[in-house]
C-alpha cells in the first residue's frame, strides 16, 4: 500500500475539483449577471409593450426594443408571458406579426440546433405565436427527423396542427402506434372549418381505429351537435371500444334523438357499457329506464352500482326511490349504495 500514491491521487483530485469549482462559480456569476440584465430590460419594456398591444400606432415599444441589447430574448419573454396570461386561444395578430418580424429567422436556425430542449422550446413558441411562415421548415424537419413517434415528432405534429395544417393528421397516421390522445390534440388545434372536414373523414374511415375513437371522443368533448346522428349510429358498431366511445360522447352531448337505442346496453356483458348507459339515463332523465337502473343498483361491479344510484338521484322522485331501495332492494350492496346516495351528493372537482 503506497500512502504517497493515495496522497497524490487525493490531492490532485482536490485541486482538479477546485479548478472546476472556480470555472463553475465564474460561469454562474456570468449567467446571473446576464439574467439580471435581461430581467431589467424586460421590466423596462413592459409598459411600452402593453401600450403597443393596445395601440399599434404607439411605436415607442419598437424603438425601445431595437435599442435593447438582448432584444430577441426579451421579446420572446414578453410575448410568451402575454400569451400565457391572456390564454389567447385565437392568438393575437399583433403577437404573430411581432414574432414573424423579429423571431422567425432565429427560430428557423434553432430548429436545426443540436440541443433537443432548445428545439422543443422553439416548437412550443412557434405554436404559441402562430408563426405560419415556418411551416416549410417544420415540414422539412418532420420529413427528416421523424423515424419514431418520439416527443419531438409529437410536438412537431401539434405545432403544425396549430398552424392549421391538415397534413398533421396524415403525418400522425404514418405511425400505427399513434394513440387517440394525439389525434385529439390535432383536432383541438385545427380551425373550425378544417376540423369539421377532418372529423367527418375520420368517422367515415374505418382503417384507423385510433383516429375514429379520437374523432368520436373529441366530438363529445367539444359538444359538436352536428355529428349527433353519426354518433348514435356508432352505437351499433361491432367494435366494443367504438361503442364505448360513442356512449361517452353522448353523455357529454347530453342529448339523444333516439333514446330507445340505449336499451340493449343496460344488459350488456361489458360493465363499461352498463355504466355509461346508466350515466346517460340519469343525465338525460330518461324515466323509462328507472326500473333497469334499480336493477343495476345490484350489479356485481361497483362502478355500475355507483353510476346507477347517481343516475337515480337525477329524477325528481329520485330521493323517494333511493330511500325505498335502501331498505327494500334484495341485494345488500345495492342497499348500501342507495343509502350512500340518498343522503349526499358526492362529487369531485370538475
Amino acid at each position: 500500500m503506497n500512502l504517497f500514491f493515495f496522497w497524490m491521487l487525493s490531492l490532485s483530485l482536490f485541486i482538479g475539483q477546485l479548478i472546476l469549482l472556480g470555472i463553475l462559480a465564474w460561469r454562474k456569476q456570468r449567467t446571473n449577471r446576464k439574467e439580471s440584465s435581461v430581467d431589467r430590460q424586460y421590466n423596462e419594456l413592459t409598459d411600452a409593450f402593453s401600450s403597443y398591444m393596445m395601440d399599434q400606432d404607439d411605436t415607442r415599444f419598437l424603438q425601445q426594443l431595437d435599442a435593447s441589447p438582448d432584444k430577441l430574448v426579451v421579446l420572446e419573454r414578453l410575448l410568451n408571458h402575454y400569451v400565457a396570461v391572456t390564454k389567447a386561444g385565437d392568438s393575437s395578430a399583433v403577437i404573430t406579426a411581432l414574432s414573424e418580424q423579429y423571431l422567425a429567422q432565429r427560430y428557423a436556425k434553432l430548429l436545426k440546433q443540436r440541443n433537443w430542449a432548445m428545439r422543443m422550446n422553439t416548437l412550443y413558441f412557434i405554436e404559441d405565436f402562430r408563426m405560419a411562415s415556418l411551416i416549410p421548415q417544420l415540414n422539412e424537419r418532420l420529413a427528416k427527423h421523424s423515424t419514431s413517434l418520439d416527443q419531438e415528432t409529437q410536438q412537431l405534429i401539434r405545432t403544425l396542427a396549430s398552424l392549421n395544417e391538415p397534413a398533421a393528421i396524415e403525418a400522425l397516421a404514418k405511425y400505427p402506434e399513434a394513440p387517440a390522445r394525439l389525434y385529439i390534440d390535432v383536432f383541438k388545434r385545427l380551425d373550425e372549418l378544417t376540423k369539421l372536414g377532418e372529423l367527418e373523414a375520420a368517422l367515415e374511415g374505418s382503417a384507423n381505429p385510433a383516429l375514429k375513437h379520437a374523432a368520436i371522443s373529441y366530438i363529445g368533448m367539444a359538444g359538436i351537435m352536428l355529428f349527433l346522428p353519426r354518433i348514435e349510429q356508432e352505437l351499433e358498431n361491432e367494435d366494443p371500444e367504438t361503442r364505448i366511445q360513442a356512449l361517452k360522447a353522448l353523455l357529454h352531448l347530453q342529448y339523444m334523438n333516439n333514446p330507445e337505442s340505449l336499451a340493449p346496453f343496460f344488459r350488456s356483458d361489458s360493465w363499461q357499457e352498463r355504466m355509461f348507459a346508466s350515466q346517460i339515463a340519469g343525465a338525460l332523465q330518461l324515466s323509462r329506464y328507472k326500473e333497469l337502473l334499480s336493477d343495476l343498483l345490484g350489479d356485481p361491479i361497483w362502478w355500475v352500482r355507483y353510476s346507477a344510484a347517481q343516475a337515480l338521484t337525477q329524477f325528481s322522485d329520485g330521493d323517494i326511490l333511493l330511500a325505498h331501495l335502501s331498505t327494500n332492494h334484495p341485494d345488500r350492496y345495492a342497499r348500501d349504495m342507495a343509502n350512500q346516495w340518498k343522503t349526499s351528493l358526492l362529487g369531485s372537482e370538475q
Binding site: N80, A84, N115, W116, A117, M118, M120, N121, Y124, F125, D128, R158, R181, I184, D185, S217, M221, S348
Partner: peptide, 23 residues
C-alpha cells in the same frame, strides 16, 4: 443535460386543459 433547458411550463400547460389528463 438533455432536459435541463426545456421550458417546463410550456411542456405541461397543454395537459391542464386536456381531458386525456387522468384524474
Amino acid at each position: 443535460k438533455r432536459e435541463a433547458k426545456l421550458d417546463k411550463r410550456e411542456s405541461t400547460e397543454d395537459f391542464l386543459r386536456n381531458q386525456a389528463t387522468y384524474p
